[in-house]
């Protein structure tokens, strides 16, 4: 496949996804600029999470997964045979709905990614752990308890720890699947502030059921419905004057 250079960090061209014979995404083409936050909204089962999981090839694990079309990150076709999926997942970090720290210490959770790469030098690890926890705005809360078990942290702290763990391997893209839906309002607001901060260095894609969160954190929003990208555009535009009636009905709660 020809790989044309352009300024976009991420691009999909006519991507369709099937699970066995069921088509779950239809012909989605999207272009995402670097250092931006893009939110994907839509009712359950609309394909937004499947879409998100295309970018770190998480769908590969799902039986019957098949896709048509292409996905590019940094102008590279990530479904190319030459793609090293492990390298891809280092570059494209992911944060899930429920915080999923390993049953290890706070320190080891963050250092994990480096250790499996064979990096065990204490100075390097110390440095990366501190830097990552600082970026995830968790350092001040845990710096004296790095040896404590990660599972003893609060839900909001665990989620920021998972973000720190993703940041430790220096990704350039972060995928977030409902990163705050299991958190209380204060933790949610911390995660949202963090997203604003992380945007300076990373390109962030976030799937959320909370439309107001999409409005608060993102520059661009895509609305999925029945596997189609119905509307994609500037978040302010989508939430004040969407072009498509389906989008309007969904965001104003008149759907169905």
């Amino acid at each position: 496949m020809e790989e044309k250079k352009n300024k976009y960090k991420i691009e999909t061209r006519n991507i369709s996804v099937y699970y066995d014979h069921k088509k779950v995404l239809t012909n989605v083409s999207i272009q995402i600029e670097p250092n931006s936050v893009t939110a994907f909204i839509g009712p359950s089962g609309c394909g937004k999470s499947t879409f998100l999981r295309l970018f770190n090839r998480m769908n590969d694990y799902i039986e019957g997964f098949r896709k048509e079309g292409d996905v590019f990150i940094d102008n590279k076709n990530i479904y190319n045979k030459r793609t090293n999926v492990e390298e891809l997942r280092k570059a494209v970090g992911m944060v899930f709905q429920k915080p999923n720290p390993f049953p290890k210490s706070i320190y080891e959770n963050v250092a994990y990614g480096l250790r499996i790469q064979g990096i065990n030098k204490k100075n390097t690890l110390d440095e990366v752990v501190e830097k990552s926890l600082k970026k995830a705005v968790l350092w001040d809360e845990v710096k004296d308890d790095l040896k404590n078990p990660a599972l003893a942290l609060s839900g909001g702290q665990q989620q920021r720890l998972c973000i720190a763990r993703a940041l430790a391997v220096e990704p350039s893209v972060i995928l977030m699947d409902e990163p705050a839906s299991a958190l209380d309002p204060i933790s949610t607001s911390k995660i949202e502030d963090l997203i604003h901060e992380l945007k300076k260095k990373y390109t962030i894609l976030i799937v959320t059921h909370n439309m107001h969160q999409a409005g608060r954190v993102s520059e661009n929003t895509g609305f999925f419905y029945l596997g189609e990208l119905v509307e994609f555009g500037n978040t302010k535009q989508i939430f004040t004057n969407p072009a498509n009636e389906k989008t309007e009905n969904y965001i104003t709660g008149r759907f169905g």
Partner: peptide, 9 residues
């Protein structure tokens, strides 16, 4: 209700 779009307008 945090109205949006046509409701907000």
């Amino acid at each position: 209700f945090n109205p949006v779009a046509i409701d907000l307008r």
